Simulated scan of single mutants.
Amino acid sequence: MKNACIAFLLALIAPVASYADDFATLADVRKAADRAIALFREEKFVEGYDSLKPYWPLPAVEVDNMANQTSVQWPLVRQRFGLSIGTEFVSQVEGGPSLARLVYLQKFQRHALRWVFTFYKPKDRWVINSVSFDDQIQLLFP
């Protein structure tokens, strides 16, 4: 009975104890975001999100859901905006010593999308906080 209780308690705390890998520097953060955006440009959403998954303290199933939602939405993006013709790095902004945001532009034949990667440094290393995209390209101007 005692072993069963210990196993039960370990099962409860294991998800809390498991934490994401992390990045030592913002240069490492940039490399990971560059890899992901290159995969997203090729419509390889599962691979792109999978490349970020080790550094994201979300349950893997939530990241998988984001990849699936993006894949489901993409035919509408393609229909409205045309084919993807490239990506551009737009900016890196630090929100103090613990937050950083990288913004990319994905160019299409008729419009563009803004991809925003946000990273958080709880102590001395960076993890992914969020990844999102939208067509609010006017927000790229001051």
Rank of each mutant, 00 (worst) to 15 (best):
A20V: 03
L39Y: 06
K31E: 13
Y49R: 06
L52A: 08
A67Q: 06
F23D: 03
Y19N: 11
D21Y: 06
A11H: 05
N65Q: 10
Y55P: 00
I37P: 02
N65V: 12
I13K: 05
C5M: 12
D34R: 01
N65D: 14
N65G: 13
Y55F: 15
W56H: 07
A33K: 03
A67S: 08
S71F: 00
Y55V: 00
A32Y: 01
L58V: 04
S51F: 03
V61A: 08
F45I: 04
K44D: 09
A60E: 14
I37R: 03
V16G: 07
P54Q: 07
F40L: 14
V29I: 08
V46L: 14
E62A: 09
A11M: 12
T70D: 09
F40V: 11
E47Y: 03
A33Y: 01
P15E: 13
F23T: 02
Y19S: 12
A14N: 02
L9Q: 09
V61G: 00
A27Y: 10
T70E: 10
T70Q: 13
L52W: 04
D28Q: 14
A67M: 08
L52I: 05
C5K: 14
P15H: 13
E43T: 11
L26Y: 01
A60K: 11
E43N: 15
L26W: 08
A20E: 08
F40I: 06
Y49M: 14
A24I: 09
A24E: 12
E43G: 06
P57A: 09
A32F: 04
D34P: 07
